[in-house]
Design a protein around this nucleic acid. Structure first.
Lengths: 206, 206, 206, 206
DNA sequence: TATGAATGAGCATTCATTCAT
DNA sequence: CATGAATGAATGCTCATTCAT
């Protein structure tokens, strides 16, 4: 009946380190993300970092992992709220959810997407893509008449990449476009694309 | 009739430095892009770097600039070859040109797009986007019946981001999708999107 | 009962660095006072320097500070030995003490006074001047009949600068003057100056 | 009948370099006194510097030499204006002349006296001291009754050092003392000192 | 466990000087 | 003579990582 069992203290330290990492990233940027600074922010000694993480990169990875996890959860949560909707409304909600999830922590998104080498968060971002892809696949599976594209996997792959970049740039570049407009375009992108029959090469087939 | 006119030597040195920068980036990666290494690769002394560039970043910028310039030129050149085509064929060619331009130097694209912080080449990439956007605008302007989207600027913005990311990931991630398939999807993305009238809400009532 | 308590190690390192700095200054001169050389002389790595000093200048400052502190203490100590003396004897002792303090480490004095930019040790030297000024003021206050100069602060300022330079040059330039002679001149300088009434114009009418 | 005989151009270049050196010293400080900068300021190439000077130090030496030469000339000129004066008035004029000579180019004096290592201008400064010493010796020789100090050479040595430092610090430190006051103190210093008979150790001679 | 002093290879940059042209 | 590109040793400093305590 220990109050702070062996692992609890470690767990707390780990959390402090990760929180400190996020804080440093957010407030000082990627270039300032040094082990010494993270340790200082976490209130532990530099050496202690290595009790819980093999190297600096592992701390950073954890911070990034969590960021994308949060984004993913925000998307999921937003959609859960509107579950049961169907057709275009669902697409619209999904687009809005994606935007909202990215807008939720713009400063950190900026650091993650702009200051970090892409390799650092590629893997994690892939998870978000998978999640959205699943959603999309479920939607398509449930309404087979909704698409005329021949390969669902490729369709989902294409759509996710297209929407992801549009959403990302809308949030980060603040291009002065009305938010509703962007959502509308995303919906149009999805709707239009799905409605195109394959093969489209009708003309060149000599 | 001088063999090495005054400026020729410097020009050659500048080119050697830039070539060395590219080489280091390609063969050793971004983390190894140090002034000493670039100087060594260029066969000049570290000090010579600073006769032509204010700092390390300027060398890197030049390398990146040139890379995106090449990509832009490749796109332009590919399209010039097939000028005069219209309709879906033109879209197809444009998609193919974009893919080809990115495929031309995959190893360097990988470093530039994955290892560098996005901020380092954001500005340059924007130029490519502008170019493609112009192409698109010209196309849309010439065939006003081709689109039902209400705001051409937003349409171009959306499309460029969508296509860029699809093309980029196809080239870098080698997702095991047939190249023609990807081109077809890109064409479908464009064609479908452009054909969706606004507001898109009404479309759902069919 | 730890053999090397937490702070002892760092304290020792700091002292080693300062001692090494002094050594380098002494043996290799100011131009050779580089961080790498000081680190090597201290038997520590260059990085260790920065655990205790913000930059190179801070190490140098500490060495200089300590040198002038030692000089100040030597002056004070010499005078303490002969406390209670009055009149000309006291002036003589003070002059002798100043000379002795500067003679104690002539090699370092040479580097500090001749190789360093004056700005580097101006502030520290001022402390010595203040100390001597205080001594002088005390002397003058105790024997108001001893001076006919109208402004004690100006008198002390003048005297300190005059004596300082005479002492400094005697020690550094080794001008081939008998030491007792110099002391006598310093005493005469003080005694004569203090005895001149103000305004001095009137004196010329004799 | 050449307009610019061979040596004239060189002479002009040498002068330009020296002027540029002075300018750099004055406007950018000693730390910025680099060959490249001096060359640029002189409008010549770095290589040309070495046609006329063996190394950087030689240029600096020349600039410093000239500065002290100017000071010396200013002192001499000031005194020439008031030639024929005798006694205390002459001392007063000499003190004033010294002050004036140092005040004439305070910014350069500051760089020379504070930023440069003393070794760099020690030799030159000595020349000024010699000059003043000569003046003093002449004065003392002409009025043997004016001093009771036993060794004229030592007397002059002492006095020059005393006055030099007082004057230097008055000009550079701007200690908030009235200029006339300082002149008066310098005069008192001289007058008082010279009037002290030797040996002064009357009391301690047990 | 936790510490934090110590490490040291490595970095970007400078600048007095040289020498082919 | 004059040039100015090229040099390269040397500089001050950083920071991920280790390890004795």
């Amino acid at each position: 009946m220990r109050k702070t069992p062996r692992q609890a203290r470690s767990r707390r330290t780990v959390e402090r380190i990760i929180a400190a990492g996020r804080e440093v990233l957010l407030e000082d940027g990627y270039d300032a993300f040094s082990t010494n600074r993270v340790a200082a922010a976490a209130g532990v000694s530099p050496g202690s970092l290595y009790q819980y993480f093999p190297d600096k990169g592992a701390i950073l990875d954890e911070v990034i992992d969590r960021y994308w996890e949060e984004v993913t959860e925000r998307v999921a949560a937003s959609l859960a709220d509107r579950i049961g909707e169907t057709g275009p409304a669902m697409v619209r909600d999904a687009a809005d959810a994606l935007l909202a999830a990215l807008e939720a922590d713009r400063p950190l998104l900026r650091v993650v997407a702009e200051e970090l080498p892409a390799t650092r968060h590629k893997a994690r971002r892939a998870k978000l893509e998978v999640r959205v892809r699943e959603l999309m696949t479920a939607y398509l599976a449930g309404r087979p008449e909704a698409t005329h594209r021949p390969e669902p996997a490729v369709t989902a792959w294409t759509l996710v990449l297209a929407l992801e970049n549009v959403a990302l740039h809308y949030v980060l570049d603040e291009p002065g476009i009305d938010r509703d407009r962007v959502v509308a375009e995303m919906v149009a992108l999805v709707g239009g694309y799905l409605s195109v029959p394959d093969p489209p090469r009708s003309a060149g087939s000599s």
